[in-house]
Simulated scan of single mutants.
Amino acid sequence: MLRISKLTDYAILMMVELTRENEMLSAHVLAERVHVETPTAGKVLKQLAGAGLVESFRGANGGYRVTRGADEISVAEVIAAIEGPIAMTECSVEPGLCHQESSCNLRGNWQRISVAVARALEAVTLAEMSAPAQRPQEPLRIMTLHTA
Rank of each mutant, 00 (worst) to 15 (best):
E138N: 03
F57G: 02
L13P: 01
T125Q: 12
I79T: 11
A11H: 14
I79Y: 10
A131P: 02
N109Q: 09
M143R: 02
E21K: 13
M24N: 02
Y64F: 15
R3V: 06
F57D: 09
T147F: 07
A131I: 00
E128H: 08
M24G: 05
V29C: 06
L30C: 09
A118N: 02
P136D: 02
L2Y: 07
A49C: 10
T125V: 03
L140D: 00
T67F: 11
L30P: 02
E94I: 09
S5G: 08
T40A: 12
R112Y: 01
S92F: 03
L145Y: 00
A41H: 09
R141V: 10
G62N: 04
L45S: 04
T89Y: 01
G42Y: 07
V44W: 08
L48S: 05
I4T: 13
E23R: 12
N61T: 05
S103H: 04
E101P: 09
A87T: 09
S114Q: 12
T144M: 02
E55C: 03
P95D: 14
A116I: 08
I86P: 05
T8F: 03
L97W: 06
V44D: 04
L18F: 14
M14D: 09
V115T: 13
R68P: 05
G84D: 08
R20S: 06
L53K: 15
N61P: 01
S103R: 01
T38Q: 12
Q111C: 01
S74M: 13
I79H: 05
V66R: 09
L126M: 15
Q47Y: 13
G84A: 08
H99P: 00
R135H: 04
T67Q: 11
I12L: 15
A51G: 03
V44H: 06
A116P: 01
I79Q: 13
R58Y: 13
G69T: 03
V54H: 13
T125G: 08
L30W: 15
R68V: 11
Q47G: 10
K6L: 07
I113L: 15
R20G: 00
L25E: 11
R68H: 10
A60W: 00
I12S: 07
R20K: 14
A76G: 01
A76C: 00
I79W: 08
